[in-house]
Computed example of a mutant assay.
Amino acid sequence: MTNPSEIIPGLIFYGYNSTTRKEKVGFLSHHTLVLQVSGHFTLETAEQKISMNKGEMLLIGKNQLGQITKTPQSDAHYETIVISLQEDLLRKIALEEHRESQEKYTGPPNILIPANEFLKSFFQSVLPYVRNPEEALTKEIGLLKVREAVTLLLHTMPRLSNFLFDFSEPHKIDLEKFMLSHFHYNIPVAEFAGLTGRSLAAFKRDFQKIFAMAPRQWLQEKRLMEAKNLIENRHQKPSAIYLDLGFESLSHFSSSFKKKFGKTPSDWSSRIAH
């Protein structure tokens, strides 16, 4: 999730929005627990679409790409608490408590956590820290809160042991299928490599074999062709699509589009309209 306030760097974050916002995000390296304080949260990945409201919790698996929609409700702003379940801490817990993955986890990568009194109390215990950032929360307390979250998750859903304590490397996945589904995410090529279970060198080598061009070149071409399709066939406005297609700014999108097709997106859109 982008631009939250860090309550404990790398561990606990607080997000607040007064208007609806969409973000394309990469969940890399660590599992993430999202506590919905108020408003409506939707996560959409290639495999799942999950929504939650005030008081609900979602466990998001590592090594994914997805789009988050944050929507305030009529009576409240949008607020979330995000807890990063970092692998080094999970490894430490596994060693100290003699926990290990009995078998490779094969369930859904994102799981709504059923509420109970323990989790509700944990939820309430975190709120004062994130709503009063001027009161310094030490890293030690932050680590205790993360440990508490892990303990309560396992108490609520024991099968999450295989989810949380699977430390195996991501296996190689179908690179072509993955890239065709996720080309519009604006992340570094190295992160695409990791998400497909490859080193950067192996990713570039396999990519060249499949697409007959370098990753950056292909991504640019694919995004521009998709932009042209959306403008021509779905009558989308350039300003409404450039972020969703992985371009960092409207000016960058416009200059790239013009270089490829000879007209700016706005000129192309006007031509179609007439």
Rank of each mutant, 00 (worst) to 15 (best):
R131S: 13
R205M: 12
L224R: 06
Q220W: 15
A149E: 03
V146G: 02
G194Y: 08
S168R: 15
K204L: 02
F122K: 06
M157N: 11
E221P: 12
F207H: 05
R223F: 09
R99G: 03
E134F: 04
S168P: 15
I210E: 13
G194L: 10
S125I: 06
N132F: 07
N132K: 08
K139P: 01
D206H: 04
A190P: 01
H182V: 04
I113S: 02
E103V: 12
L219S: 06
N162T: 14
A115L: 06
L164S: 00
L180V: 12
E103N: 13
K120L: 11
T156I: 02
H182N: 09
S125M: 07
D206I: 03
N229I: 11
G197C: 08
L195G: 02
L224W: 06
A136C: 14
M225H: 15
T151K: 14
K209T: 10
M179N: 00
Q208A: 12
A136R: 10
F118L: 14
L180P: 06
V126P: 00
Q102E: 11
H155N: 14
F203H: 04
E221Q: 11
P128T: 07
L152Y: 01
T156Y: 01
I187F: 07
Q208S: 14
A136D: 10
Q217M: 15
